[in-house]
Write a protein that binds this DNA or RNA. Structure first.
Length: 424
RNA sequence: GGAAGUGUAGCAAAGUGGUAAUGCAACUGAUUGCUAAUCAGUGAUCCUGUAAAGGAUUCAGGGGUUCGAAUCCCCUCUCUUCCGCCA
């Protein structure tokens, strides 16, 4: 959520900035809504003040034993006009709030111009792209042996975009999760958390998935308004909703493994083959709650923590800076890590590390007590995948494949797999 | 699932229809001096205002009764205890 005070002061400048991400902010209708709200708010407060004052005097008169009937008669119609004003104001406030909740974050100045992912800017590459002296297979064919990775079983149990894994494949999938969690908590100092996989609507509003992106979520048919989480970002960041954090406790760094559930509405026909785009996938997420002045540095550090995983797995990747048009709704700046997939002959996203400024914090009322100003101020929130587990598994299968169709187990993972050196 | 309780500011805790006591913590200021004490001020959100200041809202959430609601009524939620069920 943007700062409504800044929006009031200079709506044209904000509209101009929002144009970078092709968001059309209607300054005129916002101004007229604001004008109406201001007038109505003043009128309502005047009426409330009158009611309070008069009620008080009735109380005093009664205490003295005076007759209160004439006083009651004087304010006979105050109640109705107050109620009308309050109701109108409440509707108007809701309209403005809803508008505000649907405006995306302002982009950081450093974000490059651009419309789509084609305009993203490559910052660096790491590792050597492997060359094979045999015809390579993609991860679906590699996983098909002995039903290690079984998409038909996923269809039978549920439907499209679900998978069943068996034996060493399931084990490597689990090993990746353990390896990532251990690395981030032991070497990067993140505190591990375990959280619910089902959240309420308030949490989703807090991180920005609601109200705009409900169609991307799986909603439960329960009495309460419950949703399956699309990422651990939602429960972990919302730990700090409606909270005033002690300054000494910042920065807070959490690592969390969860399954993620996404409806993938609007992605029909994209990545239909294989593990790349599933309705259910595992992810290890890094979340940081930081002081505003630290956030730019911290997001770079977090990006580095995610990169370490690929380096230890010896998987080639590149880091790109998302352009204005490709940066997500809540983010002010995003770096993607893309891993090399030989069968697709391209880099594919495996982590997205974003800086949200105070956008999520304002929605969540996540604040800290600034000991210099002695005021409660909004924190900044940062998160990134460290990493998407399914896609990491795909990258290992394709990059570590052997001529006989087996997969060499990366050195760093072998201790997590009972010393196993190859699968398939 | 059944029954009975419960929810008040960072924490603790009064308040049963007249408009949120008090204690601790924290912060600010003053005074006295020795590892601090005493006194005063300061809850949160929002609005008007350059400011000084003023006002509104806020007692788990939502609705209702009333001139006036933390207090009375209805619905929902949280936590606690007991019973039932259960990995």
């Amino acid at each position: 959520m943007l700062d409504i005070k800044r929006l009031r002061q200079n709506p044209e400048a904000i509209a101009e900035q929002l144009k970078r991400r092709s968001y059309d902010f209607d300054v005129e209708s916002f101004n007229s809504l604001e004008q109406e709200r201001k007038a109505l708010s003043i009128r309502t407060q005047e009426l409330q003040n009158e009611r309070n004052t008069r009620s008080k005097s009735i109380g005093q008169a009664k205490a003295k034993g005076e007759d209160i009937q004439p006083l009651l008669a004087e304010i006979a119609d105050l109640g109705d006009s107050l109620k009308t004003a309050e109701d109108e104001l409440s509707v108007l406030n809701q309209t403005i709030h809803h508008l505000l909740m649907s405006i995306p974050n302002l982009l950081d100045e450093s974000v490059p111009e651009g419309k789509s992912e084609d305009d993203n800017v490559e910052l660096r590459q790491w590792g050597t792209i492997p060359h094979f002296d045999f015809t390579i297979k993609d991860h679906v064919d590699l996983g098909a042996a002995d039903g290690l990775m079984d998409f038909e079983a996923g269809v039978k149990l549920t439907g499209a975009r679900f998978v069943v894994m068996r034996s060493h494949m399931a084990r490597m999938h689990r090993a990746l999760i353990q390896f990532m969690l251990n690395t981030h908590s032991d070497e990067h100092g993140y505190q591990e958390v375990y959280v619910p996989y089902i959240v309420n609507a308030d949490s989703l509003r807090g991180t920005g998935q609601l109200p705009k992106f409900e169609e991307d979520l799986f909603k439960l048919d329960s009495e309460q308004e419950y949703y399956l989480i699309p990422t651990a970002e939602v429960p972990v960041t919302n730990l700090f909703r409606d909270t005033i954090i002690k300054e000494a406790d910042l920065p807070i760094t959490h690592v969390c493994h969860t399954p993620c559930f996404r409806s993938e509405a609007g992605s029909y026909g994209r990545d239909t083959r294989g593990l790349i785009r599933q309705h259910q996938f595992e992810k290890v997420e890094l979340v940081q709650i930081v002081k505003p002045e630290d956030s730019l540095q911290k997001v770079t550090e977090l990006l580095g923590h995610a990169e370490v995983i690929l380096q230890k797995l010896e998987l080639p990747y590149r880091v790109v800076e998302l352009c204005a048009g490709d940066t997500g709704f809540s983010a002010t700046k995003t770096y993607d890590i893309e891993v090399w997939l030989p069968a697709q002959n391209t880099y594919r996203e495996i982590s997205s590390c974003s800086h949200f400024g105070d956008f999520q914090a304002r929605r969540m009322m996540a604040r800290y007590k600034n000991t210099k100003t002695n005021k409660n101020e909004l924190v900044h929130t940062i998160n990134g995948s460290g990493l998407a587990v399914g896609r990491t598994l795909v990258a290992i299968l394709e990059n570590y494949q052997q001529a006989d169709g087996s997969i060499r187990v990366p050195d760093i993972l072998q201790p997590y797999m009972g010393g196993l050196q190859k699968i398939g």
